[in-house]
Amino acid sequence: MSTSTTSADTTPRRVRDHHARAARRRAFTWVQAVLLLLVMLLINMPLILTAVNSFRPRLDIMAGSTLVPERVTLENYQAVFGTTRYTEWFLNSVWVSLVATVVVLIASGFAGYSLSRYRTRVNSVYSNMLMVFQLFPLVLSIVGLMVLFVSVGLTKTFVPAIVLYIVMALPFCTWMFKGFFDSIPRELEEAARVDGCSSFRAMISVVIPLAGPGAAAVAIYAFLLAYNEYMVASAFLKNPSSLNTISIGLRSFFQQNTTEWGQMLAASTLAVLPPLVLFLLVQKWMIRGMAAGAVKG
């Protein structure tokens, strides 16, 4: 009788303890979510303020009394498209960035695969030289590069900027690809060669698809490097004005006697959209690539 009474008493207590632990876990999850939301808002506050103020009239921007705009207007965006060459800046930036990104993806992909799969003395020297090149800032050679491109008649074109963006991104992107290729088992390539594939075919059909997350990371890095860069653009793409990119165009809003804050904020907000869209698209592809790699592996 006493045994049955004791078990009957402990069962509701266990249920209550289980519900209490579940409630604490839910409360902890909510606290984590709120803290992460606050941190996210704090980190992205400059971007949020830029977007919000781009819809304010110029006088309201200078006053800056409230976070929420009292008056919402599109005059800043109308001025950007009506009085500036923003569309041309945007197309130039996207064109230069895409060309540099495609070349970097191909070149760093093959270079990273070679460093990962073929451990030769030449590759060892090459990998060390990649690290050495990263130690020297490009600004040290900008004058010499200007003289070089002038002598071969490539100024007043996109070629100097594209070439330099490729050179700037290649070392780091090669190491990124090497790290991803190192994580892919060699047995997959050996199995493909047993089935009759050549080494090149095994790389294209087996290794490259599994390195999708690495390719996405390299694409984001190379695109953002070229899209956001200012020093090379100001040296090689400032004249003629038809070569201007967004980074140079934004500088034009800072004039000698005044600054068009509304137009600059509107142009900056628009400039953020292409990298944001690219990241969202590539993020989905990265998740699919990682899932496919896990299944195939």
Rank of each mutant, 00 (worst) to 15 (best):
W95I: 11
L36Y: 04
G249F: 05
Q256K: 11
A266T: 06
A266W: 00
V68E: 00
L278S: 08
P46M: 01
L38G: 14
S241R: 07
S199R: 14
Y126D: 06
R21M: 03
L273C: 11
M286G: 04
L154A: 09
Q283P: 11
C173Q: 04
Y221F: 14
R16E: 00
K284W: 03
R13D: 00
L224V: 12
Q134P: 11
R193C: 08
M168H: 00
T269M: 05
V102P: 13
L225I: 11
V94Q: 09
L237Y: 03
M45A: 13
C173N: 08
A111K: 02
S124T: 09
L164T: 07
F28E: 12
E260G: 07
V52P: 10
R58V: 06
L115Q: 01
F223Y: 08
L98V: 15
P57A: 03
G109M: 03
S198M: 02
V52N: 04
A100C: 09
V122N: 05
G293N: 05
L270H: 02
V159D: 05
Q32T: 12
S7W: 00
S268L: 06
L105W: 02
S127C: 07
S97L: 01
T83Q: 09
V282A: 10
Y118M: 04
L225H: 09
W89Y: 15
W89M: 11
Y86F: 15
T83M: 04
I162G: 09
M168V: 05
M203A: 13
G179Y: 06
F254V: 13
V159L: 12
A111V: 01
V159A: 15
C173V: 06
F90M: 11
N92M: 02
V102Q: 02
F253G: 15
A79M: 06
L170M: 14
Q78E: 14
R56W: 04
V68R: 06
M45G: 10
P160N: 08
V102M: 02
E70K: 15
M264S: 09
A191C: 07
T73L: 02
V272S: 13
H19F: 11
R288F: 05
G249K: 10
S198H: 05
R16G: 03
T120W: 01
Q255G: 15
F110E: 01
L130W: 02
I43P: 11
G82F: 02
R71L: 01
L49K: 12
P275D: 01
L41K: 11
Q134Y: 04
